[in-house]
């Protein structure tokens, strides 16, 4: 039985893409949720360690073997929602690693119920994550 409820889930389609990218790049991956304009409000996928996380980031959990982060002030506005990492055809405009494949990771969201809020996976800061 799962002890905690995950903050970030992943769709089957996104899993297939993650496997493909891992296979091509021969490396583990990480996600950082972006904010702001253009390609903002979308999750960015990088080779693990390419994006340097720090004390202002929140580690929200592991998604299909990939660490998922968000900046703490953004997390403050997002923490009451459960995210699902999905993928759609498209063309982002950032450095996210999947873009040349003609697809884009995206986030779907739903509200946690009151009961769920007590059972969420504890988060740690990027600094604590690095010290693990």
């Amino acid at each position: 039985m799962q002890k905690y409820i995950a903050r970030v889930l992943v769709s089957e389609e996104a899993k297939v893409i993650i496997d493909k990218i891992k296979d091509t790049h021969k490396n583990d991956l990480m996600f950082h949720q972006s904010g702001g304009c253009c390609d903002g409000s979308s999750p960015m996928c990088f080779e693990k360690g390419d994006f340097i996380v720090g004390g202002s980031d929140i580690w929200m959990g592991e998604v299909y073997g990939c660490d998922f982060f968000m900046n703490e002030d953004q997390f403050d506005y997002w923490k009451h929602t459960q995210l699902t990492l999905d993928v759609v055809p498209g063309r982002g405009s950032s450095f996210s690693i999947e873009i040349p494949m003609g697809i884009r990771f995206m986030i779907r969201s739903r509200l946690f119920t009151t009961e769920e809020l007590d059972k969420l996976i504890p988060v740690i800061t990027g600094e604590e994550y690095l010290a693990r």
Binding site: H32, Q33, S34, G35, G36, C37, C38, D39, G40, S41, S42, M44, F46, D50, F51, I52, N71, Q74, S93, S94, F95
Partner: peptide, 27 residues
């Protein structure tokens, strides 16, 4: 001009090269 995560990534590169950056990241 873009979003926050890429903005941070570009600053990360700029910190290695010690070059200035300017950013417009939305609102």
């Amino acid at each position: 001009t873009g979003e926050t995560t890429t903005g941070r990534l570009i600053m990360q590169y700029a910190s290695e090269n010690l070059v200035p950056v300017t950013m417009e990241l939305g609102g």
